[in-house]
Design a binder for these strands. Sequence first.
RNA 1: CGCGGGGUAGAGCAGUUCGGUAGCUCGUCGGGCUCAUAACCCGGAGGUCGAGGGUUCAAGUCCCUCCCCCGCAACCA
Length: 651
Amino acid sequence: MQEKKTFYITTPIYYPSAQLHIGNTYTTVAADTMARFKKMTGYDTYFLTGTDEHGQKIERRAQAAGKDPQVFVDKIVEDTKKLWKLMDVEYDVFMRTTQPDHIQAIQRIFKRMLDQDDIYKSTYEGQYCASCEAFWTETQLNEGGTCPDCGKVTELVQEESYFFRMSKYQDWLIQYIEDHPEFIQPPSRANEMLQNFLRPGLQDLCVSRTTFSWGVPVDFDPKHVVYVWIDALFNYVTALGYMSEEDTLLKRYWPAQVQLVGKDIVRFHTIYWPIMLHALGLPLPKQVFAHGWLLFGNDKMSKSKGNVVYPPPIVARYGADALRYYLMREMPFGADGNYTNRALLNRINSDLANDLGNLVRRTLAMIEKYFDGVIPQPGIYEEVDIALREKALALPAAFEREMDALQFSQALQEVWRLVSESNRYIDLTQPWVLGRDDAGKERLKTVLYVLAEAIRFIGVLIYPVMPTTSKRIHQQLGITQDAHTTWDSLQAFGALPAGVAIQPGEALFPRVDVEKELAELEADKGKEKPQSDPVPVKKEPAKAQIAFDDFEKISLKVARVLSCEHLVGSDKLLKFRLSLGQEERTVLSGIAKYHDPATLVGRKVILLTNLAPRKIRGVMSEGMLLSAENPDGSLHLLFADDDVVEGAEIG
RNA sequence: CGCGGGGUAGAGCAGUUCGGUAGCUCGUCGGGCUCAUAACCCGGAGGUCGAGGGUUCAAGUCCCUCCCCCGCAACCA
């Protein structure tokens, strides 16, 4: 049996000191897209993501929260996994540096480095801020030598530390980078490393700490813990069983084909990491790809600026696929990009709703209309048909070329060329004219088949980026066999089975009202508490099922607000005078904080009319107004359409 | 001279490796079509390609000088 080619891809392991945001999501979705693509094209694929859970910052955060560090990170890890699930990220392994097997492997690695004299014990000297318990370099300090974090005066402190002999390997690495231009991508990053760090000369790297204890203990010198460089970077191989008894995965997948990193951690992944791998006799990853950052508008995302974007509210509104598409399409991978809600919404409307969604819908609608929803058997291909067919057949190669270069945006652009061409094809062939007579209908069979087949191609190609939409498209085309949705099925134009009933469903991507959505997203953000659960859904135990008879006991009616005012002596209550047509009632409602009474007069509201009357603050309230409660506790009155007559029964 | 990235139509970007009529998306204006999610298709307007100088038959693209913006200090992608 022939061995499949392997493809190992990693994201950085994230630091779980706070909720992950859209930047982390960007990297991870990119890795997922790549992994799905490689899997689809026949590679034996392995995809790693995870969390780097040690270090002083987490130790302090946990302390501040009054929690054990492990408990603290467990919670964030749980949220992180939920986020990946929400984003349809299918990793093969979620690596955590607090796993026992990792800890043991790190201890062995540390010992081995010491034994072969790559690590030595010495003292670390630096400016230390006692308040922050952190070392700073001279250049990091404020003018006057104060701590950049808290502004207090720092002191020169010595700490016993283990050091890795980076300098020993620097010439080897310079040579390696020069000999392997593909190793660091984009190439400008390689320049940066060579100019700034490698050529000026590397300093030996401090690889242990004694100032905190939340880390992998150095087993032969227990007052030290292994510092992040070794602890975190080596996860990429300990996850495969390096330094354990079971290392078949390591043999199978290492070296990685691609390691994705943000531009801020390029140095660690292209200098320290390769040197340490080399020192241990391991091969280097084929490529370290540094992508840019997602900026908000032109600003850095920053909690203090209040512009950090979190995916869950976006996914809740538009679905994971829309966000995945935007992230992969909007900016070239490698350069910085801007995230704006407006750009996202515009992409959803133009690319997804207008171009793709509408193409699918209009095609299916015509198959429905002219052939009773059954995909027709094509006849002889004419010139226009052949032109579209050739474009479709040429697509996979172009797509693969761009994907292999991690140019997701370009790859999608290629697919959208076929989307456009297909829309154009409809204009050229004018199916609605063909449908008018029998002669035209023969020709129409071919036209609609060609269209449906082009859509099948599109469905297959978008799978890595939009897995759900891909499936929906194929479902709507009535495809039931997986063989018709594989990469190999794109070798021939015509795999779509004729004579099968299509299954038209909901619009793939409904158009959105940009201005309205922008306002609502903005409102969502105000209510959202970034430190809280990323899925801002209050989980209350579901109420027990009721019988219809139970519902029948309730009388809901539409009422018109005749007057509304603050109830004197209460800051919560509004006093309503309501008309139900035949009768009028007085009702109190505890929504004064969220509604201005003046704006409510004349509105149609929903009243629970048969609730037992109750005296509140001396006023008899005859019923209850329905309102909705947001997760933040705010209350919003529910309104009925103006067309509804007052007194109308609701049921 | 610290290092890197960038300055191209109203907006967002590609094109610069290996000089040869300035391109894409959105927006805008006009037309077409009516199968479709007011969607789709065609066409137009709109740019001294940051400034100046140089090389060349020819420069957004090569060379020199200068100006401006952004990162390298993070919420660490």
